[in-house]
């Protein structure tokens, strides 16, 4: 079990146009991709949505980490494909659902890889969201890698006590996660209590009006992105409503129960 999946969601400061973009513009883009990928069930449409992101990921120089995330989610992707396929969906539909999942994961991966939690917090604050809420959100994001490290330590500690994670049937394997999850949850709760106490003792939220040293500003690139994003959204909705995309499908289908029945009868 590896926690390197999270690598693809970790921010790393790099000097690329994508990193420099305003988080709000980026977020709009991600939301539009998200919405469109839920709108379409067509294989071609979803593939295009997936492919749109690739140049951006390359531009942000995150290709390697992105690949790692994709590898990490491969298991779920395959699971989604198989589940769709054996329950009687067509090949194209099963593949489309898999690509939808990958699109969602990779868009969030792109966003979190290129947006520092601080900038994100700032963006939320400038959207007039109360600071305690913003702080909670940024802390949650920041704690993900910390908890990932904790999880690895817990796994190591329990393995050292003879716990075998990869052994036994399905029920045994699920049960094996109890010794991992409980210490993890307990230490997360303990940490949050300590964090709260530390915050209180340092006068958190004592001044009602906060001023920020840095204010986010839309650059030309951000405006262009925003306009393109809106165009993409309109275009996507237009296609969904008025254009029927061609369907490609392989003529293979998982045999359904009725197929077996007729097969046995003959």
């Amino acid at each position: 079990m590896s926690l390197r999946v999270f690598d693809g969601f970790k921010f790393k400061k790099l000097n690329t146009p994508i990193h420099k973009m305003d988080p709000r513009a980026k977020f709009m883009f991600i939301i539009v991709i998200f919405a469109l990928s839920l709108l379409f069930t067509n294989l071609i449409g979803l593939t295009i949505l997936f492919l749109i992101q690739l140049p951006l990921i390359l531009l942000a120089k995150c290709g390697k980490k992105w690949l790692k995330t994709m590898k990490g989610t491969a298991f779920f992707a395959i699971l989604i494909f198989i589940m769709n396929f054996i329950t009687g969906s067509s090949f194209a539909f099963s593949l489309a659902m898999t690509i939808r999942f990958l699109t969602l994961v990779s868009s969030f991966s792109l966003f979190f890889m290129t947006t520092s939690p601080d900038d994100l917090g700032l963006a939320l604050e400038q959207m007039k969201i109360p600071y305690p809420l913003v702080f909670t959100f940024t802390t949650a994001v920041r704690l993900v890698p910390t908890i990932a490290i904790d999880a690895q330590t817990v796994i190591d500690a329990q393995k050292s006590r003879g716990l075998e994670l990869e052994k036994g049937n399905l029920i045994k394997r699920v049960k094996n996660f109890i010794p991992i999850l409980i210490p993890l949850i307990v230490s997360a709760i303990r940490r949050s209590m300590e964090l709260a106490e530390a915050l209180e003792s340092r006068g958190f939220n004592a001044s009602k009006k906060r001023e920020s040293y840095i204010t986010l500003k839309f650059s030309k690139l951000d405006y262009i992105t925003l306009i393109l994003t809106i165009l993409l959204l309109i275009f996507g909705i237009y296609i969904k409503l008025y254009v029927s995309l061609p369907q490609i499908d392989l003529p293979i289908k998982f045999p359904t129960i009725s197929f077996y029945k007729t097969f046995l009868k003959s």
């Binding site: 500690a157 329990q158 003879g162 716990l163 210490p183």
Partner: peptide, 22 residues
């Protein structure tokens, strides 16, 4: 060899007990 079979020979006690009590 697996950790589980080695653990029987080598007992490792971690620094932070909160990482293992459940």
């Amino acid at each position: 060899t697996s950790v589980a079979s080695l653990a029987k020979l080598v007992g490792l006690v971690f620094q932070n007990p909160d990482h293992q009590l459940f």
